[in-house]
Design a protein around this nucleic acid. Structure first.
Length: 506
RNA sequence: GGGCCCGUGGGUUAGUCUGGUCUAUGCUAGAUCGUUUGGGACGAUUUGACCCAGGUUCGAAUCCUGGCGGGCCCA
């Protein structure tokens, strides 16, 4: 019966995540996908509010860590790209020469991101001499300006960020928030006096990510990406992967340590206290609307979304019941709303002339953490009814309103953290191991679909390739939380604490 | 990168194989009025669609080609 009713709303079961996800983002009114360009959804107010609340958390972290917000132009002239291309091919060559050959893969992609950018080649009636492209990320425009701003050690560290839209011409299947062509993007770019300064920044980035994940109430796997999977411009890259309900991992954040390689390409240098010219060391840190995609996937259930309170566009919805029978209901509920607003909560009064049940279902779909009901009965008893989106219906005294709501939002956060931790341990399981036989490498048992496999690994690139081939999965890299005790490497058998994961990535 | 499927009111769906009886069906949503309101209300009235461009044909939602859009599978 209940199932049938839900079917009317068109929400598939979350077990069928590939159907649930695209349906829920539209039914919950986060986006409208009908804009006639693939991968460019219209943000509806409810979805945009959630995104801007995530941005607000991000901005608070940036403020805390002394980054300053900039806003760079959207268009980049093609010739600026030459520096970057030269750098990348140079670094690629250097890597091929300087690095243990076993760390190399032969099939590295060519041509950088030229294939995946949008070009502006005309202006009015004229064809442009120098075509421009829409930023897919802002290294090039930013590092064109940085040398103009950095002259002395006193100008460092330079800590910048911006929250803007970037563009990538995705040809694959697109998915709201997860793979889109116009990306709501956060990027922090910093320049430091030396490598230690950049190292410190990377540590700080890791901390910022953990703070955000705490507010969004889910865990992630943080890994140093394997060298073969690292952007050639980076010295090393650290990625933050969330495990979605279908077992695929979603990379929601990355931070790169660039060392001084970009500074050399873009001539970003300063004069130190000894009057010597030095190259800067740089980092970048990127996140995107994928964070919202992770929130949707991680916390939602068969009844709809569940927003973590910190980013819930509406934290508390108030529903008058049978207000026509008692004329004190409407003013009382307005008074409650006013109290809650004054206490800093995001509140909505649902005055719609529909049955209370319909309201409950609506706000459940939209993932509002708390629903308060007030009717004539409650006015008499001096109480109100509170339904929690994570489950449970409670009666409380009206005098306790603020405390009850505040406490219930905290309980919601804790419950979401418990659930997402359980979710994670359900999906991340030990790797069954692999054995070399006469016929080649054989998995010790078949792998389950939709799981992330965890194991100790200390091999080289060809060892890694053996595992990727045999499993059909991809290496996430060296987890920043190694095993407490050494274990035998899955391929070489050498004892190691290096924790690694194989997963199917988005 | 390779293969496959799909496109009908806001959403969903029938009709497409076998061209005409389809200015197009049901559900849902929307609008108006009335009765209603403690977990998806009911009645009456009503608005609203064949993705785009070519082609085949006396005749195309239906067949063919291309574009755009959506989705799936494999690498």
């Amino acid at each position: 019966m209940a199932k049938h009713d839900k079917a009317k709303r068109g929400i598939p079961s979350k077990d069928d995540f590939n159907a649930w996800y695209p349906a829920i983002v539209e039914i919950a009114d986060l986006v409208d996908k009908r804009y006639p360009i693939k991968g460019m959804d219209v943000w509806k107010p409810y979805g945009w509010k959630a995104m801007t609340l995530i941005d607000t958390l991000t901005r608070a972290e940036m403020e805390r860590t002394d980054h300053e917000e900039y806003n760079f132009p959207l268009l980049v002239p093609e010739d600026l790209l030459d520096k970057e291309n030269r750098l990348v091919s140079l670094l690629k060559k250097a890597r091929e020469e300087g690095v243990d050959p076993s760390e190399l893969r032969l099939d590295e992609e060519e041509g950088g991101f030229k294939k995946e950018v949008y070009w502006v080649k005309h202006a009015g009636e004229n064809e442009l001499d120098v075509p421009m492209f829409l930023r897919p990320t802002s290294e090039t425009p930013m590092y064109t300006m940085f040398p103009l701003w950095v002259r002395s050690h006193g100008d460092l560290p330079l800590k910048t960020f911006q929250i803007v839209n970037t563009f990538r011409y995705e040809t694959k299947q697109t998915r709201s928030f997860i793979r889109v062509r116009e990306i709501h993007f956060f990027e922090a770019h910093t320049a430091h006096k030396d490598q230690a300064g950049a190292d410190e920044q990377i540590t700080q980035d890791a901390e910022i990510v953990q703070n955000l994940l705490h507010d969004l109430c889910f865990p992630a796997i943080v890994s140093k990406r394997p060298l073969w999977d690292t952007f050639p411009g980076a010295w090393y890259s650290t990625a933050v992967d969330v495990v979605m309900p279908n077992g695929r991992t979603l990379q929601v954040a990355t931070y790169h340590h660039y060392k001084d390689q970009w500074a050399k390409a873009f001539d970003l240098k300063y004069e130190d206290t000894n009057g010597q010219t030095q190259f800067c060391h740089q980092t970048t840190f990127g996140m995107s609307e994928r964070m919202l995609g992770a929130v949707v996937g991680m916390h939602g259930d068969d009844a709809g979304l569940i927003f973590p309170p910190k980013i819930a566009p509406i934290q508390v919805v108030l529903m008058p019941v049978a207000a026509h029978l008692d004329h004190t209901v409407a003013p009382t509920i307005e008074e409650m709303a006013a109290q809650l607003k004054a206490a800093g909560f995001r509140v909505k009064v649902d005055n719609r002339d529909i049955r209370p049940g319909a309201k409950h279902y609506d706000w459940e779909i939209k993932g509002v953490p708390l629903r308060l009901e007030l009717g004539p009965r409650d006015i008499k008893s001096g109480q109100f009814v509170m339904s929690m989106r994570t489950g449970g219906k409670e009666f409380h005294d009206s005098s306790e309103l603020i405390n009850v709501v505040s406490d219930a939002l905290t309980r919601t956060e804790n419950e979401l953290r418990v659930r997402s931790a359980a979710h994670m341990s359900h999906f991340v399981i030990p790797f069954p191991g692999i054995t070399q036989t006469d016929g080649g490498w054989q998995l010790n048992s078949d792998l389950e679909d939709g799981k992330v496999y965890e194991f100790a690994f200390d091999g080289n690139d060809s060892d890694a390739e053996i595992l990727e081939r045999a499993s059909g999965l991809t290496f996430l890299g060296d987890c920043i939380e190694p095993f407490a005790e050494p274990r035998p490497c899955a391929v070489t058998g050498r004892m190691t604490t290096r924790r690694q994961h194989l997963a199917r990535m988005y």
